[in-house]
């Protein structure tokens, strides 16, 4: 598995798209810092970008890579290697290289800017951690689609739909349900609904770390009461981990029973 991961990673690290992705973040980081001059503001802007873009890129890039490396996969399948190792290797390679682009692309400008000395280092660290988690989650989800759908066009469509659902439609339904049941106490419900969607969960986790959390008012206090504790934070991290582990597990399960 490590060998596959190594080569896949190697392949991706040298691909044009990884560079574009990396340079995009690098540019974004520098722009935000030198136009804004305010680290915590930059973190908020980054939050907006990360919760939309990282899932989108993870999904699209994941599905594209899976389809494009069909022949490579078949070459590997004929080699004396476990299937599980091949797909886990491919998955970790893609998710890993996306994460590396993200972490280095944003990390370099922030480090140069003097992040290490500033107080937002933990917020920024959390942001990168969450960006990495989202990369792994959405790459795993897109691999799931790819492994069960041989039609590239359909697979691509499904993965865009998936992203749309998680990033937009889910929140729309969530909002409608909140308005519809507005007479009822909704704090626990909204806590639950937030936990279930990794994008919402990521957004809230970061918001709570920032000054802007004060805007969340009473509901925010309930959230802070939950996520602010060690147990709550661990639960949030466990949910994010489940979002990585379950789709990956299903992907492996499907891949082991698939004809190539």
């Amino acid at each position: 598995m490590y060998k596959i991961l190594k080569y896949c990673f190697y392949d991706l690290i040298r691909s044009r798209w990884s560079y574009v992705y990396f340079l995009f973040y690098l540019l974004l980081g520098f722009m935000l810092l030198f136009l804004n001059n305010d680290l915590s503001k930059a973190v908020i802007t980054l939050l907006n970008i990360i919760i939309v873009l990282v899932p989108l890129i993870g999904t699209i890039f994941g599905i594209m890579y899976f389809y494009n490396s069909k022949e490579f996969t078949e070459l590997l399948l004929a080699q004396p290697i476990r299937r599980r190792s091949i797909f886990l290797g491919l998955y970790l390679g893609v998710a890993g290289s996306l994460s590396v682009s993200l972490v280095l692309g944003l990390g370099i400008p922030f480090v140069l800017y003097g992040l290490m000395k500033s107080g937002v280092i933990w917020d920024f660290g959390l942001l990168l951690l969450i960006g990495t988690a989202l990369s792994f989650i959405f790459t795993a989800l897109s691999f799931n689609i790819a492994v069960t759908q041989d039609n590239k066009i359909k697979g691509f469509g499904y993965s865009v739909l998936l992203w749309l659902f998680m990033a937009v439609i889910y929140d729309g339904l969530f909002l409608l349900s909140l308005i519809f049941f507005e007479e009822y106490p909704l704090d626990r419900y909204s806590l639950g609904a937030t936990l279930l969607n990794p994008i919402d969960l990521s957004r809230i986790l970061i918001l709570l770390k920032l000054d802007i959390a004060a805007l969340l008012g009473y509901t925010g206090a309930v959230f802070k009461g939950f996520f602010g504790t060690n147990a709550g934070f661990l639960i949030a991290m466990a949910v994010l981990s489940l979002w990585v582990v379950l789709p990956t597990g299903r992907m492996i399960f499907k891949a082991e029973r698939k004809d190539f």
């Binding site: 080569y7 190697y10 392949d11 991706l12 040298r14 691909s15 490396s69 069909k70 022949e71 490579f72 078949e74 070459l75 004929a78 080699q79 004396p80 290697i81 476990r82 299937r83």
Partner: peptide, 20 residues
Amino acid sequence: WTYRQQLSYLPQIANFPGNL
């Protein structure tokens, strides 16, 4: 999978990771 150590395969379509 271990039996494939005794086996070499030439696939029909020769397409490899392009960046290598």
